[in-house]
Amino acid sequence: MSNRLRAAALAAALLPLASPAEAYWEYGHESVAGVAWLQMKPATRAAVARILKDGALLETPTCPVRTIEQASVWADCVKPLGDRFSYAYSWHYQNVDICRPFDLKSPCKDGNCVSAQIERDARLLADPATPRREKVMALAFLVHFVGDLHQPMHAGDHGDLGGNKVAANYGYIGGRMNLHSIWDGPLAERAISTPPGGPAGLLAAVSPERRAAIAAGSVTDWSREMWERARTLAYQTLLGDPCAKEGGARPTLSEAQTQALIPQVREDIVEGGIRLARLLDDALGPDHKAPGQKKPSAS
């Protein structure tokens, strides 16, 4: 077991249950950001770097955004700052019921869900009139929230705070572990570090044609995909019947189940990175495209 995984296991055993806003732990978010950095166009990398140079405007010195990897965890890092950023609590997830037809309308009421905020942040980045401070904040939020959306337990729910109330063991690791924290931490750790590991290893395994297919679609399409994976992979693998009421013995995600899930978790991460790169290429490119926006018709 790696030092990172030991630390994750210890944290899970000692800390209280994670809230639905606790996100993908650092390794998952940094990996999504790293994939995006490698995948985006050179001009986009330069634009991202220019925006991040304004990071001091956020006035969060304990939570720097000097690199895209630092920006990817900024939205979690600022949570201890209390009222300054408490408004963003519900933006990290969307509790879409896995046992009902897919529907974002109720979970995203008034825009308070991860997919709505992804689109909002992309629009802010695409708008040349957005002030510099708001632009760097939109970039940090966007990088983080695309990572959140591609962790299935942030996209699907069964009345249990995205699996936070489903007590579970990860192999022999128990304590305060739950379905959500397993996917946030040790399972992501195993998947990312499986050779070929890291952002470069993850991306190298995907052909250019496959990358183009992954980048296609809308934020709603991606939300539907991750909601379905929450049902068929996360809940079903652990519980058998994803819609059953919790009860009986505390379930355990076995080593065999973990090995079977690793390829899909790797795919979740690389998809998040490729799609983040597309959003940034669109928003920061010459056409300043953003999700859901139509170009004005020629007069």
Results as ranks from 00 to 15, higher is better:
Asp221Ala: 10
Gln257Ser: 07
His158Ser: 01
Ala140Asp: 05
Ala256Thr: 12
Ile214Pro: 01
Arg120Ile: 04
Leu5Val: 14
Gln70Glu: 15
Gly247Met: 13
Glu225Cys: 13
Asp76His: 03
Asp54Val: 01
Ala18His: 03
Ser297Gln: 14
Ser72Met: 07
Leu276Pro: 01
Ala129Pro: 02
Asn112Ile: 07
Gly175Phe: 05
Ile214Asn: 06
Arg266Leu: 04
Pro107His: 02
Trp91Glu: 11
Leu202Trp: 10
Thr258Leu: 11
Leu203Val: 00
Trp222Gln: 04
Ala213Asp: 07
His150Gln: 06
Glu255Arg: 12
Tyr24Lys: 11
Gly55Gln: 13
Leu15Ile: 06
Leu57Tyr: 04
Glu134Phe: 07
Val35Arg: 14
His288Val: 06
Ala234Asp: 08
Tyr93Thr: 01
Val265Gly: 10
Trp222Val: 00
Gly201Leu: 10
Leu239Pro: 07
Ala21Phe: 02
Ala71Cys: 09
Gly174Pro: 06
Leu124Ile: 01
Ala244Gln: 10
His150Arg: 06
Pro186Glu: 07
Ile192Trp: 12
Lys245Pro: 12
Asp241Ile: 07
Glu119Ser: 14
Gly175Ala: 05
Ala215Ile: 05
Gly163Met: 00
Ala56Phe: 03
Leu139Pro: 02
Cys99Pro: 03
Gly156Phe: 01
His144Asp: 06
Thr67Tyr: 09
Leu187Phe: 09
Pro291Val: 01
Trp37Asp: 12
Ile51Gln: 13
Asp121Asn: 13
Lys295Met: 11
Thr62Glu: 15
Phe145Leu: 15
Pro128Asp: 07
His154Ile: 00
Ser254Arg: 09
Lys295Phe: 05
Gly174Ile: 01
Pro196Lys: 12
Lys109Ala: 12
Ala212Glu: 15
Leu38Arg: 15
His29Glu: 08
Ala213Ser: 12
Gln39Val: 00
Arg229Lys: 14
Ala33Leu: 06
Gln293Ser: 14
Ala71Met: 08
His29Asp: 07
Thr252Leu: 09
Pro196Tyr: 14
Gly247His: 14
Pro263Gln: 13
Lys79His: 14
Gln257Phe: 08
Thr237Pro: 06
Asp127Phe: 03
Ala8Tyr: 06
Pro80Tyr: 11
Ala298Ser: 09
Tyr172Gln: 14
Val78Lys: 12
Asp76Phe: 04
Leu125Gly: 05
Arg176Leu: 10
Gly240Tyr: 06
Thr194Ser: 14
Ala244Gly: 10
Ala56Glu: 11
Arg176Trp: 10
Gly163His: 00
Leu179Asp: 02
Gly198Leu: 07
Phe85Ser: 07
Ala23Phe: 02
Asp160Glu: 00
Leu57Ile: 04
Gly285His: 11
Ser31Phe: 06
Gln236Pro: 01
